[in-house]
Design a protein around this nucleic acid. Structure first.
Lengths: 213, 213
DNA sequence: CGCATTTTTGATACACGTCAATCTCCGTGG
DNA sequence: CCACGGAGATTGACGTGTATCAAAAATGCG
């Protein structure tokens, strides 16, 4: 995982995409920052850089008129957050980890953001908006299932594995109460759609396997 | 409105921002396209260009799994839509006019999109996401009021004037039923918060004045 | 004028919110 | 090792804001 792939390459690692990818992974591993569930990643109005989400999920909050924090957006694996700092030098939202997660500085390396990469991020943001808006319509069960589908990644056993965010977070994302979320999750566990994933030697209790039907 | 402001300028119009703005308006007036309420602006998978919203409001729809169209996003004055065509050459969403509106091709002129303009559009998109997500929480009255506040622009009499979208559209944006929207709008009219704006010699019946309290 | 679409209004049903009590988990310190 | 405490999760009883269904009225348009 952490071996230096650069030294393995017989030729310049940039000649082949597989090698480039490994190089990229190595590079990211060196500069990656980890956050725990519930930990604040950055704060609105603070200065900082943009990040790519390597793993885990993040919620972005906006200050409400009354000073409270309102859910504003969601970021999952592959998304880039905090791009507003490239323009204004300051974050506009407050970012909190929904699950344990890893972030890498973006843009990668010393290069600045290219036009195409910005366009890709913009297109991804528009898709994400549509997804997040959809999380707030339909029955409670549908909303929770859609959120889980966004968070779950297919793991090595071809199951969908993910870390369940706290009830309070799920409730604010889906615009339901934490009591309704608790009842909904209970039904999913009872039906066997959601099962606890025990990772030997690891004390993380919020990992679940998600199996449709 | 349509007079050639360029010829009025005694000096280069680009020396002063007021002149530059007028020049910009003139330029846009020449290439602007108008759409009526309910009219389709573009279709998902069709090829085309990006647009800046000069006036009016637009809803973006996404295809649901069952083939139906789901509300995905909102665009108002100043927003840029369809940027995904700069990358993929095809639209990803379906755009429909919520009110009569005017669009101008973007990027303006023959120049291509600059890094900074893309960053500004990305930042605006993130803010818009937060706004649209907020439209789907709270009481029916609050949701409708927030939507109106997004659509209303301060006019020359310092009132907030806007074109009310169809009930069906408001209901899909706020995730309420059209019956609930009808009841809510009725209360707003009854309270005098919403008043019909009659424009002499114009047959547009959906213009309203919005006065808080 | 006549038809299609949209809006309005009323009666009833229900999914979820609210409130309150209890339980579980987990870190902390004696 | 266990008692303690706080945060979060769970469960139950009950209330309510909005959905649903149905029918009438208003509006827009050729």
């Amino acid at each position: 995982m952490m071996r230096n792939d650069l030294t393995d390459a017989k030729i310049s690692p940039f000649h082949y995409s597989a090698s480039r990818k490994r190089c990229q992974q190595h590079f990211e591993a060196c500069r990656t920052r980890s956050f725990h569930q519930g930990e604040q990643i950055y704060c609105a109005r603070a200065s900082g850089i943009s990040w790519r989400v390597i793993s885990g999920s993040i919620r972005l909050n906006r200050m409400a008129n009354d000073g409270g924090m309102l859910f504003a957006n969601l970021a999952v694996e592959g998304d880039v957050i905090g791009t507003e700092t490239l323009l204004m030098g300051r974050y506009e939202f407050l970012a909190v980890a929904l699950s344990d997660c890893e972030l890498a500085p973006w843009p990668e390396g010393s290069s600045s953001a290219s036009r195409d990469s910005l366009l890709r991020i913009l297109a991804a943001a528009e898709r994400r908006t549509a997804d997040v808006v959809a999380l707030r319509s339909g029955l409670a069960m549908d909303r929770v299932m859609r959120l889980i589908a966004m968070l779950a990644q297919r793991d090595e056993q071809a199951d969908f594995c993910f870390a369940l965010p706290k009830g309070q977070d799920i409730s604010e994302i889906t615009d339901l109460t934490k009591e309704t979320i608790s009842r909904t999750i209970s039904i999913l566990k009872q039906k066997g759609i959601l099962r606890k994933k025990v990772i030997p030697g690891q004390s993380i209790h919020r990992n679940y396997i998600f199996r449709e039907r």
